[in-house]
């Protein structure tokens, strides 16, 4: 599964009307995509279901960009497969 594509899907699901072309790795969730803290919880829940993993709250708190989400998931996937 392509992690970035799944993150993009989750963001678009959480924020109806989000312009997909704006969802790039460096995009700031709050300033560029208007994703607030509540939206982010929903995004995390969707991704946890998609990848069947648990995203640690402390790591989610530091997330600022789309790429940050991708990194956290990739790191968890590595831990799980190890």
């Amino acid at each position: 599964m392509n992690v970035f594509e799944e993150v993009k899907k989750a963001l678009c699901k959480a924020s109806a009307g989000l312009d997909e072309s704006k969802v790039v790795s460096g995009a700031l969730l709050k300033d560029d995509l208007d994703i607030d803290s509540l939206d982010l919880v929903e995004v995390a829940m969707t991704l946890e279901d998609t990848f069947n993993l648990t995203l640690p709250e402390d790591e989610m708190e530091n997330i600022r960009t789309v790429g940050d989400i991708v990194s956290v998931i990739e790191a968890r996937l590595k831990v799980q497969s190890a």
Partner: peptide, 10 residues
């Protein structure tokens, strides 16, 4: 509990 919507309260 971890699947309850963050939008429940609002």
């Amino acid at each position: 509990p971890t699947r309850v919507s963050p939008f429940l309260v609002p």
